[in-house]
Design a protein around this nucleic acid. Structure first.
Lengths: 207, 207
DNA sequence: ATTGTTTGAGACATAGATGTCTCAAACAAT
DNA sequence: ATTGTTTGAGACATCTATGTCTCAAACAAT
């Protein structure tokens, strides 16, 4: 086999990141195989996308395991939890770059993938909960909001890389800093600056 | 006219948020008009999407103007800048809910919309720069990273609303807190409410 | 050189979306 | 009731993507 199934998956992901609406013919061309061969490896488009989704989830799972978040979630040591959080965030940066929103939507729309995604998200949430108990993360924010925040910041990472706004080597530090400490300046000068405003002054304008 | 062009736009946006791959027939049905009438209002799909994109950008622009970010960007007063930032964030929450990623992709792919989006983004970046000069935002983070962070957090807002993770009225405060102070536990701030203090003061650490 | 296998190119039928058109029904205003 | 307009339903041709199939060329292994 000149081109393995795995190589096709990788090339397909790259091309779908470039053009989320790519057709099977586009993908075949970008992969370097004929349309017929693509159909020999994958029954149909659905089958291909399923494989792509599982690949994305594999990587996500690896990032979690490499960071050892399950053990960390059972620990009560702030240091252990903080380290796991940092390593997981750094690991996820690589995923954010490779696996675009197209896969995110895909995972959400296919029940089989969705279940697996929920499972992985659950493990992260367990870590956030442990982090709150250990005083590493704020306990006044809902864990699911924290989880969505991480997801959003990873999209910011991807955007920054795609647009060339930030050097790759600076990203782990920036992501970590922004997640833990935010973008606001604390104690800018020994005087008093702004007061951290609590609560919204106005609700959403349109429901 | 039973259904105005504006009503069609609104209904089309809602339905495309629900199903980003909806066809013209789907949109017509969801809008409550026939396919023929839809084509009487919009030359083709391209024309419809263009109108949708401009509508999204209109709302974004309104949120910026309502917050007065241009004047604030010319100010050096931390209070003025902080207020503008807070109001802009609160205003954008409404947009994040209504205008999904589908429109984000759309804006990026149509040059006419993309230019307008860049212009609006530029105004925000001017505000972030002013905020850095005034000591409101950290000066060690690139403004474009800050801009992308806001974008990512708004997606977290949308996700939280879609999944019912967070009450709508809590979102402005959470967004603001997370953006300015991050998710990490800090030394309890002076003068504001007590939280269930979870012992350890393991603050964020520099990586 | 001779197998047996894999591939690429292309034909083919099918399905779905798009854009245009016609015509009768519904409607508003007089 | 009589206009003039707008709408909905559907027919129609066109285009694109998909999935299946065939067959000759390329290939690897003996």
């Amino acid at each position: 086999m000149a081109v393995s199934r795995d190589q096709i998956i990788v090339a397909a992901i790259q091309h779908l990141n470039h053009d989320p609406a790519a057709s099977m013919a586009d993908i075949a061309e970008a992969t370097g195989v004929s349309r017929a061969t693509l159909h020999r490896h994958f029954t149909g488009r659905e089958d291909l996308l399923l494989a792509l989704g599982h690949r994305a989830l594999d990587r996500w799972e690896e990032a979690q395991e490499d960071a050892g978040i399950e053990q960390a979630a059972r620990s009560a040591e702030p240091i252990v939890i903080t380290t796991a959080l940092r390593e997981m965030l750094s690991g996820l940066i690589g995923e954010a770059e490779e696996y675009n929103f197209a896969l995110t939507d895909l995972v959400m729309s296919v029940p089989e993938l969705r279940e697996r995604g929920d499972e992985l998200e659950g493990r992260e949430i367990a870590l956030y909960r442990a982090a709150q108990r250990a005083g590493v993360l704020r306990a006044d924010l809902p864990v699911r909001w924290i989880s969505n925040t991480v997801y959003g910041l990873l999209l910011a990472v991807r955007e920054s890389l795609n647009r060339g706004d930030v050097a790759r080597r600076d990203l782990p530090g920036m992501l970590h800093e922004t997640f833990f400490r935010g973008a606001g300046e604390h104690d800018p000068h020994p005087g008093r600056g702004e007061r951290p405003p609590e609560g919204g002054s106005q609700g959403g304008r349109r429901p």
